[in-house]
Design a protein around this nucleic acid. Structure first.
Lengths: 114, 114
DNA sequence: AGATTTACTTACCTGAAGGTAACTACTTAC
DNA sequence: GTAAGTAGTTACCTTCAGGTAAGTAAATCT
């Protein structure tokens, strides 16, 4: 550990939380990952599924690619298609995602649904 | 389900993700919850621990209180102190928090630490 | 009476996040 | 050749999250 932050301390947990948030933060990162959890998808498919503009999608896909969460594959087949898929690191969010969604539903039942 | 979104569909998961993000989003929500996981704390204690300005802390605490994640208790003891603590709903983030932090560490090991 | 501590609030400012609309480039279908 | 679908890019604009700095109010210490 570079800055001598011991495991199990509050400071260590704060650092871990910050690290995770940096990658997953924002309106579109989690939705994109959810969308790609089902199956690999093309640009237009993601766009239609989560209702994002092409500009934002392009921008967020680039960021996720830089962080090795997703990968872009170009198929120079019929009309030239591009497929996005989760990398192993992207797939490693599955347990987190699961708890995240479970809690979202729990919260909705407690608060949103009064 | 008001809008007839079936469970297990992608749209349902997108909704759950959005719900959770709305509450947990931002630079300070997760850090505040982490800070209060250890033990109940006072305004100044949280402030010093996570390095937040009084304005932001006050603002975020109010938002978390409105969402029933934390509760504020006034002790009109010695110099008048205020203690913030997690509600049961706040404590219900424990598994999510755990996976979140685990993943943050995993991500750091994979990417940040090359 | 003056200084310090606790818990805030208020006013102001800046940059990043996100949105809209229009345009590009390539291919295939008609 | 022109329309339609793919996968984006570019320019511009608005909003809001977050930051800084200073002020307030009540009590306690000295």
């Amino acid at each position: 550990m570079a800055k001598a932050i011991k495991k199990e301390t509050c400071q260590y947990r704060l650092m871990a939380g910050k690290d995770a948030m940096e990658v997953l933060q924002g309106k579109w990162r989690i939705p994109i990952i959810i969308s790609l959890t089902d199956e690999d998808k093309r640009f237009g498919e993601i766009q239609r599924e989560i209702g994002i503009s092409p500009k934002m999608l392009s921008q967020e896909l680039k960021a996720l690619e830089e962080n090795k969460i997703i990968s872009r594959t170009l198929y120079d087949s019929m009309p030239v298609t591009v497929e996005y898929s989760l990398t192993p690191l992207g797939r490693s969010t599955d347990k987190l995602l699961d708890e995240f969604l479970k809690w979202g539903i729990h919260f909705r039942n407690e608060i949103v649904g009064r």
